[in-house]
Write a protein that binds this DNA or RNA. Structure first.
Lengths: 148, 148
DNA sequence: TATTGTTATACTCTATAACTATA
DNA sequence: TATAGTTATAGAGTATAACAATA
């Protein structure tokens, strides 16, 4: 087993992932501004899109955030008309969230913003490197349990 | 010019960078806990290490944070004995920060933590993919102006 | 009693504004 | 008057704890 260790902190994957991730997030926040969304709102839309309707507590667990945060994210998305909240008739404690057509439109707008950002981000890379980066990040994302 | 666009948000580089970056940062925070450091403290140590002694305002500009934040980061690092604050004799308004031997030790401990994290992070990747990822992140890091 | 969602409260991080010392 | 640093204050984001409704 190979153990290549970086000899300086800026050379580590961790350092680079942390800082580049924060930069990308800042840019994404700016790009989402006109849509009145934050990254966590988009994350919730993605979850409802890929996993289908879900109760708030399920969402909290999947996203790894507090249930109280799901309440305010859902409040906002409901106000935008992006999701519907329906009480589960079988268990009236559950609020089942589902994507509306407007929500799907918002998600598409978020995707467009991310694709524009991707183009900027990948600008210094060769075509080959872009493909490689996408493939390798895909492996790490799958390992981390992110939706595809 | 090629324009491969992702068809789903979780497939974008931006989404993956943002979420993986946040996950790695959380893990890094946990790993730094015993050292009584946060990622921004480490960032400041890295800057003093790679760029040599610098005034607080220079650091604020390079790190892209408010000068008042540099004050509290420097307060903490000074309390730990990791940096020295010396008034510039030529311009007594400037506080010049420099790394101490203890600071260099802390930095080495932070590097060790990052290397351990890197090993976990890269675990699902082939040897070839690890190299590729390191190389490509290096390009992006350089483009973003990170220290090497 | 246990669970789902909600509300109330508090904590962390960081920025902006006001202030002090020096130029 | 302008600049470096500091202190005071405020805002964003999110968690924890208390509470209400339902099981």
């Amino acid at each position: 087993m190979n153990r290549v260790k970086a000899t300086s902190l800026p050379g580590t994957l961790s350092f680079r992932f942390g800082i580049l991730g924060a930069m990308v997030t800042d840019l994404f926040v700016a790009a989402l501004g006109p849509l009145d969304l934050k990254p966590k709102h988009v994350g919730m839309l993605v979850l409802l899109d890929t996993g289908g309707p879900a109760a708030q507590l399920e969402i909290a667990r999947t996203m790894g955030v507090a249930p109280s945060l799901v309440v305010s994210l859902a409040d906002h998305l409901e106000k935008l008309g992006a999701i519907q909240r329906v009480r589960d008739a079988a268990d009236r404690r559950r609020q089942v969230l589902s994507l509306t057509d407007q929500g799907r439109d918002l998600l598409a707008a978020g995707l467009a913003a991310a694709n524009r950002l991707d183009a900027d981000l990948a600008e210094p890379l060769s075509e080959q490197d872009r493909k490689e980066l996408g493939r390798i990040l895909g492996i790490l994302a799958a390992e981390a349990g992110l939706p595809h």
